[in-house]
C-alpha cells in the first residue's frame, strides 16, 4: 500500500500515462467501433496540436506565472496566416510571410505580457487575461466580425493534415520538432536552470544573481512566439478560422500542463509531463465524444474527472504539516 502511494506521489507522468491507457481501453470497451485508424490518427493530430499550444504555457508556469493569452494569440495569428495565404503571394513566399508574422505578433504580445508581469509586477493571471481580451477584441475590429477568408487554402490544409500510412498525421512532425526544441531548451541550457530556480524561489534566485526580471520577460516572449506558431499550424489543422477560434484553448493548455505534473506555483515540472497531460485530455474528450451522451452529461463527466485528476496530484500542502 505504502509503495503504491509512493508511486502515485512521485511518478506523476507514469500515473497520467496509466490513466490515459485506462481511459482509452474503457472507451474501446464501451464502443468497440471507435477503435480504428481514423480515431487513432485524429487523437495523434489533436494531441500534437495541444502539445504545441501548451509548450509556451509550460515554460510560463515553470516560472510561477500563468499565461491566459495563449488561445487569443493563437486565434489572431491563425486569422493573419489565412489572410496572408489568400493575399495572392506564391505559396513559398506566402508561407514565409505568414511564419514571420506569426513569430512577430506572438513575440510582441508575449513581450507585453512579460513587461506587465515582470517589469510592472502585476498579478500574471489578471494582466495576461486583459491583454488577451484586447487581442480578442482586435480580431473582431480588424475583420469586422468575420474574416474575409475563413477557409484555409487547400494545399496548406493538406500539408498539415496528410496522414502517412493513414495513421501518422504530418502535424506530428511539427510536434516532434517543438518537442526537441523545448526538450533541449529545458534540459541543456543555463536559461532553463535559471528558469527552474526562479520558479522555485524567486527571492533566492534573485539573490544568487539571476536577473529574474529579464528572465521572466524572455520566457513570456518565447511563450508568445510558441503560441504564435501554434496558431499558424492550428489554422492548417482545423481548416476553418474565425474570430476567437482558439479561445477555449487557453484553459485547456493550463489543465494539460497541470495534469502533466507541473506545479502551478512553479519550479517543478517538465515538457514530457505536459505531452502526457495533453494526450490524457484528448483521450478523455475523445472518449466523451464516443459515449454519445447529451451535452449536459458530457460536461458533468468532464468536470468530475478533472476534479478527480487534479486531486490525484496537484494538491497543495496541508496546513497541518
Amino acid at each position: 500500500m505504502e509503495r503504491i502511494r509512493h508511486f502515485f506521489r512521485t511518478r506523476q507522468i507514469a500515473v497520467a500515462l496509466l490513466i490515459t491507457v485506462f481511459l482509452f481501453v474503457l472507451t474501446t470497451l464501451i464502443n468497440p467501433r471507435s477503435l480504428n485508424v481514423n480515431t487513432a490518427g485524429s487523437i495523434l493530430a489533436l494531441t500534437s496540436m495541444l502539445c504545441l499550444a501548451s509548450a509556451g504555457q509550460t515554460l510560463v508556469i515553470l516560472t510561477g506565472g500563468i499565461d491566459m493569452s495563449t488561445g487569443d494569440v493563437m486565434s489572431i495569428t491563425a486569422i493573419l496566416t489565412v489572410s496572408i495565404l489568400h493575399s495572392g503571394l506564391s505559396s513559398g513566399i506566402g508561407m514565409l510571410a505568414a511564419f514571420v508574422t506569426a513569430v512577430a505578433v506572438g513575440a510582441f504580445i508575449g513581450f507585453l505580457n512579460g513587461l506587465g508581469v515582470a517589469a510592472a509586477g502585476l498579478p500574471p493571471m489578471v494582466v495576461t487575461l486583459y491583454i488577451a481580451n484586447v487581442v480578442d477584441k482586435l480580431q473582431y475590429v480588424f475583420t469586422n466580425g468575420t474574416p474575409t477568408h475563413t477557409s484555409v487554402p487547400n494545399w496548406y490544409k493538406q500539408l498539415i493534415t496528410t496522414r502517412f500510412f493513414s495513421v501518422l498525421p504530418s502535424i506530428l512532425i511539427v510536434g516532434a520538432l517543438v518537442f526537441v526544441f523545448v526538450f533541449l531548451l529545458l534540459g541543456r541550457t543555463r536559461y532553463a536552470r535559471q528558469l527552474y530556480l526562479t520558479g522555485n524561489n524567486p527571492r533566492a534566485a534573485f539573490l544568487t544573481g539571476i536577473r529574474t526580471r529579464r528572465l521572466k520577460i524572455i520566457t513570456y516572449t518565447i511563450a508568445g512566439i510558441l503560441n504564435g506558431l501554434a496558431g499558424l499550424i492550428g489554422a492548417g489543422n482545423t481548416g476553418n478560422v474565425d474570430c476567437g477560434t482558439f479561445r477555449d484553448m487557453t484553459i485547456t493548455t493550463i489543465v494539460a500542463v497541470v495534469v502533466g505534473g507541473t506545479l502551478l506555483v512553479g519550479g517543478k515540472g517538465s515538457f514530457q509531463g505536459t505531452m502526457v497531460g495533453a494526450l490524457l485530455m484528448i483521450v478523455l474528450s475523445n472518449g466523451l465524444a464516443v459515449l454519445q451522451v447529451s451535452d449536459s452529461i458530457r460536461n458533468l463527466i468532464m468536470g468530475i474527472i478533472l476534479i478527480a485528476l487534479l486531486s490525484l496530484y496537484n494538491r497543495e500542502r496541508s496546513v497541518r504539516l
Binding site: 497541470v258 502551478l264 476534479i307 487534479l310 494538491r315 497543495e316
Partner: peptide, 8 residues
C-alpha cells in the same frame, strides 16, 4: 482535496 482554487 486541496486543489488550487483557480483549477478547482
Amino acid at each position: 482535496l486541496r486543489i488550487p482554487a483557480l483549477l478547482e
